[in-house]
Computed example of a mutant assay.
Amino acid sequence: MSPSWMARLTKLRELTLYKCMNCEHLPPLGKLLSLESLSIWYMGGVKNVGNEFLGIGSGGTLSSSSAIVAFPKLKYLSINYMEEWEQWEEWNYKIIEEDVLIMPSLRFLQLNSCCKLKALPEYILQMTTLEELRIKYCYVLNLEKLWLSSYKEDIPLANMRMLTLDSCINVEYLPPLGKLSYLESIIIKRMGRVKRVDNEFMGIESSGRHRSITVFPKLKILVFENMDEWEEWDIAIGDEESTIMPSLQWVTIQCCNKLKGLPDHLLRAPRLEQLTINRCSILKERYRGEMGEDWTKISHIPNVQIHR
């Protein structure tokens, strides 16, 4: 049952729920047909976000089309400090027989400090409208599922342009982000168990076939910070016709003290304009000034900054 106040909010476009600590279930906000921005903060009593959040059930959300639509205009969704939230349920298609659309306009999703959240529902992973995803301090979230959709022929989040992964401390291997051909910006921070970045991150599958490929075709910004255990970054591609990051312009590596070197494919990116290395002791010695053993590999880059 919808709270009585929702019936009067037919034109509401922006909503923030803040420190509703006694709330154990989110209201059926999917029924707010004009809602474009939703921010949820400090809902410490919520452990499960189920189908009721979508506002779909008997006599579900109405729309002008034959399909039922939850959150028809929502573009911005930010969920923060839901420290007891464990489960975000899949949509149960057995509830009603009509076609259902969920958040068909969503562009931005942030999950911040949802420490117990285990996975994202399939209806989020299958979004073709999502352009920016930020995941921060979600310690047990299954990132592997982000890239392994149950729809095998599809690539989850295929049209995403900006991605931030911060403090996903249980992750040992970075996901195959190279498969997201529209990505323009990647920021990865505090992934404390990652020791190696290789072809898997590039989205390159090992097989006997040799073919020309383009990896990260639109990537412009690449940032790694505070990767305490990261030691190796290796791109192993034998085909000379393969293209790696042809649009890359800006690379920042910060506080990665165990990292031994940067891959040649990265340093040869044709549009690379700025390389920043900060607080990376091994990289500093390897690439610094004219004295570093690999200075010649970066000397062509217009703006190189190596600090401390």
Rank of each mutant, 00 (worst) to 15 (best):
G59I: 07
S150C: 14
A158R: 04
L33G: 02
C280N: 01
Y42R: 11
S242D: 15
Q254F: 05
I244P: 01
A269D: 07
R211P: 08
W88C: 06
L32E: 00
L12S: 14
M245A: 11
Q305K: 14
C114W: 01
M291D: 12
D166Q: 13
G44P: 05
L106F: 01
K260P: 07
C114A: 11
F216E: 00
D154E: 15
E200A: 06
I186N: 00
E144C: 05
K179C: 10
T10W: 04
R286F: 03
L117K: 00
I282S: 03
P175E: 03
W88Q: 04
G57A: 06
I95T: 11
T16Q: 10
I79S: 00
E225A: 12
S149M: 09
Y139H: 12
T243G: 05
P246F: 08
E122N: 13
L275Y: 06
W88R: 04
V69T: 11
Y139G: 02
E132N: 10
R196M: 13
G292C: 07
I301H: 03
A119F: 05
L275A: 08
V49A: 06
W41N: 05
S65P: 02
E98K: 13
C138I: 01
G203E: 03
Q305P: 03
S167V: 06
K284P: 00
V304A: 07
L101K: 11
E97S: 14
E24S: 15
E153M: 03
P121I: 03
E153I: 08
P176D: 02
S299T: 10
R268E: 13
A236C: 15
E293S: 15
L15W: 07
Y137M: 08
L183M: 12
L177I: 15
N51S: 09
M127V: 03
E241V: 14
L54Q: 06
D154R: 13
R271W: 09
L283Q: 02
S242P: 05
Y287G: 01
I277R: 01
E231Y: 09
K152D: 04
E98Y: 08
W88P: 02
P27H: 12
R134G: 00
N48K: 13
E98T: 10
I40H: 08
K118Y: 03
V49C: 02
M162R: 15
E273A: 11
H307L: 13
P72Q: 09
D99L: 09
S207R: 11
E153G: 07
R196S: 13
P270F: 10
N80K: 13
S212K: 14
G192Y: 11
L54M: 09
C23N: 06
N199C: 11
D294F: 01
Y18G: 05
N199D: 13
N48Y: 06
L177C: 10
Y182R: 13
H265E: 15
R209T: 09
